[in-house]
């Protein structure tokens, strides 16, 4: 465990807590893409299958349970909670996220570390996580006014994978040159997708105006 990875995990955890806070405190999920939340739930389930088979550390197991349950809780809220579900921008959240699932799965069948069920699920979760934010970014461009908590949620979500890239650089130089090109490439794509969001978030912060993504 190194500082970059710990910072990354904490930033990721914080992003989920910010979203849970927004939904719980405002009883609203306006501006939040349910499709992105569903994709994240699939990512965590596909990646953390080893939760019951391989014990790595208490920290690792606890965090896996937290991520799976929190993503499931957010999806449940957006689908079933009587007050929250009414605030879902159904007609704005129109990204065809099934395409992302299919493309990631095909990619995982072709590019994986080993052609085993576990490894294909792991590669699938890595590829899907890289593009899971797309429905949310499209929704932000559509819904002109982005409320602060949703903006902060996306910001922390983007920052977490950037910390992981630093973690991979650190591990590359300290633990030997393990070939981990799958998370490397997917992580770079994932962070690049946030680039324009980071730019407009920084502008809105600098000019002290509401965050608005150009259509």
């Amino acid at each position: 465990m190194n500082a970059f990875r710990f910072l990354g995990d904490m930033t990721h955890l914080f992003s989920v807590l910010v979203l849970l806070l927004k939904i719980y405190a405002t009883k609203s999920c306006s501006g939040v893409s349910r499709k992105t939340q569903e994709l994240y739930m699939v990512v965590f389930v596909a990646r953390y299958m080893d939760l019951f088979t391989d014990y790595i550390s208490l920290y690792n197991s606890v965090m896996k349970v937290v991520f799976i349950t929190s993503s499931a809780a957010i999806v449940w809220c957006m689908r079933r909670h009587p007050q929250v579900r009414r605030t879902y921008d159904r007609d704005q959240d129109t990204f065809r996220h099934v395409v992302l699932v299919a493309a990631s799965f095909v990619l995982a069948l072709i590019f994986n570390e080993r052609f085993t069920f576990r490894e294909i699920c792991w590669a699938f979760s890595i590829y899907l996580e890289a593009v899971a934010i797309l429905p949310q970014l499209v929704l932000l461009q559509r819904s002109r006014n982005v409320d602060n908590l949703t903006g902060q949620y996306v910001l922390f979500l983007g920052a977490y994978r950037a910390f992981y890239i630093l973690n991979w650089i650190y591990r590359y130089f300290t633990e030997g040159h393990t070939s981990r090109w799958i998370p490397w490439i997917a992580g770079l794509v994932q962070t690049a997708l946030y680039a324009d969001f980071f730019y407009y978030y920084f502008l809105s912060w600098k000019n002290n105006v509401k965050l608005e993504l150009p259509a």
Partner: peptide
Amino acid sequence: ATPEPVKDEL
């Protein structure tokens, strides 16, 4: 066979 590197990251 080379032991599979344990996936210790989240």
